[in-house]
Write a protein that binds this DNA or RNA. Structure first.
Lengths: 195, 195
DNA sequence: ACCTGAACACCGTTCAAGT
DNA sequence: ACCTGAACACCGTTCAAGT
């Protein structure tokens, strides 16, 4: 039996920050943020929990920062042609999908952690608006308004906020909102308000 | 020395759900959500941690649900006179203040917990719009859009999201946003987009 | 350089016991 | 009815040790 060169003692892929982050995201998406523990993450990576600290010296804090970066850093296409309204509509739809797909990370996005995670995304929104002819000041306002709306609406969707508790209970079908349509309608309100 | 009637053995105020919630909020506001533990909460109330379970049988989950309700349930004044734009502007300013004053609770608001906590608030926004003459469908959309914007923007403010990381570092004063003005400008974008 | 194993100081929660 | 104290099964993290 021929030995492969440079395999480590346990004969498995070496630990990397990326593999760690991906495994963590898989746990959060599948079991929820509350079940992401260093020991469970170690199990998923077939390694002792303490091995993770070698790659993430700041420990769990750094792990969570990485999750926020992985989910929240998704800039708009600043080189896209067409009306800025359409470019931003497409971005917003994708970003919403992202947040809903990783809803367990949303509480982390709403924290002071990893302040740089949203900077690139925000800058891209401003750039799309600026290139679309919107004045500098208005673009800055619109970028924050749009990003705020998308994050906040995603939060409401995750909560499944009923229109009216009573209506949801009594009139069947009145309480369950078509969230996709609701999101796009609200998006038009926001984009329509940009002067 | 005259004894007061009906004092308990330890001579202190009896534990109530309200006192527990208020003490918990004080810990979260002062030290952060991460430092809210049942043992520390017990200390603050001068009681063993296990005594709390007698008032909150579902334990910490129920405690956190109470915090969300306490912070996020703040309906608009549906009986106020004047233009609906002004009523909602006033509500939004107050609600933003509330969220920023209790920023540690924000991650909990963005969770599936306590789905009913926002229902009354959301219903009040719809009612203000409806009474202001906005059509039913548009009012439902506008209510979600507005609440989503306020929550999402508050989240961005808590993060202190710089406009542009590079600009914040190089050009002094360019990076630090006037968040109050920014919030009100975005609010006008949203309200201006409601047809 | 990279990982392990034991240990430490915490958690939330259960349960029997006290008053 | 209301609270206590000990106990249990976990946490994140440090540190000395292994290879």
């Amino acid at each position: 039996m021929v030995r492969q060169p440079s395999i480590n003692a346990q004969n498995r892929a070496p630990l990397t920050t990326e593999r760690i982050t991906e495994a963590a995201l898989r746990i959060v998406d599948g079991q929820g943020l509350g079940r992401l523990t260093m020991r469970r993450l170690g199990d998923a990576l077939e390694v002792e929990a303490m091995a993770i600290y070698h790659h993430l010296p700041r420990g769990k804090e750094q792990l969570l920062d990485g999750l926020v970066a992985h989910v929240a850093a998704a800039p708009a296409d600043t080189s896209a042609s067409g009306r800025w309204q359409d470019v931003l509509r497409a971005w917003a739809g994708d970003y919403r999908d992202r947040l809903l797909a990783h809803a367990g990370v949303l509480p982390l996005v709403v924290t002071r952690r990893n302040p740089a995670a949203l900077t690139a995304t925000l800058a891209s929104l401003r750039e799309v608006l600026r290139r679309g002819g919107v004045a500098e000041d208005a673009a800055a306002v619109a970028a924050h308004t749009l990003l705020g709306y998308v994050i906040g609406h995603a939060a409401l969707e995750v909560r499944g906020t009923a229109e009216d508790g009573a209506a949801a209970r009594t009139a069947a079908g009145d309480g369950d909102v078509d969230w996709g349509a609701r999101f796009r309608a609200g998006l038009d309100v926001v984009l329509g308000g940009v002067r």
